[in-house]
Design a protein around this nucleic acid. Structure first.
Lengths: 107, 107
DNA sequence: TGTGTATTTGGCTAAACTTGCAAGTAACAG
DNA sequence: CTGTTACTTGCAAGTTTAGCCAAATACACA
């Protein structure tokens, strides 16, 4: 594999990795529904330490998936890219497909 | 977050994690183009040890994204879910969006 | 200025992931 | 049966990531 190809897949992987965590998927899901949320709201939903949530948000921001907007003492986050929801549709269909196969194996 | 919600996002994350590696993205990409490939072909493309490639394939298979088909001494892998390619479209648009922003920041 | 709230960052530990080598299994050829 | 090829798995590093607590920063308000 040449260096250019490798760089291409590493760049893609960086974005996928940013989504590869339950808490970060929840954040993306919530932002897609609510439009924007502050760190404290997300922290309450997730149930981890706020510092942990802040780091998750930094990962998503680093991948360019979300953007922040500081207003007063609060920081609001929102999605930068709408197509991220297609991920969920695809994941759901993978899970449905897996479930179907398992059921067939039980017969 | 209740246990059910948590389980939902963990199940999703498992699938996304399976894709969160350059070599595995390359495998998926290649399988979507070629239809099927044996381990030796993928090993040559990726350039890692065959044992490493075999493990990557096991991860993708564990997530239900690919399936294998042993014929003779060779094992062929192919995609189980076609929509995985939507991932790439979305990722590309995220990267294009990021690039655009970077260019604007340079002005 | 001093206090309280919201968020980020440093430091540290535990868990998870990646990888290559070596050894094991399976199929085929002679 | 023996050797070879294709692949998988056990093991042991090395690297990355996640999580919490504590400390630092940023802002608002009295």
């Amino acid at each position: 594999m040449d260096a250019k190809t490798q760089a291409k897949y590493e760049a893609r992987a960086k974005i996928v990795k940013a989504l590869a965590h339950p808490a970060r998927l929840l954040i993306v899901d919530e932002l897609s529904k609510a439009g924007e949320r502050c760190v404290c709201e997300l922290t309450e939903m997730i149930g981890s330490d706020m510092s942990t949530v802040s780091r998750h948000l930094a990962v998503l921001k680093g991948a360019g998936l979300i953007e922040d907007d500081k207003r007063g003492q609060m920081v609001f986050y929102r999605l930068r890219v709408k197509c991220v929801m297609d991920f969920f549709d695809c994941i759901e269909s993978v899970m449905a497909c897996n479930l179907k196969r398992q059921q067939e194996l039980l017969k």
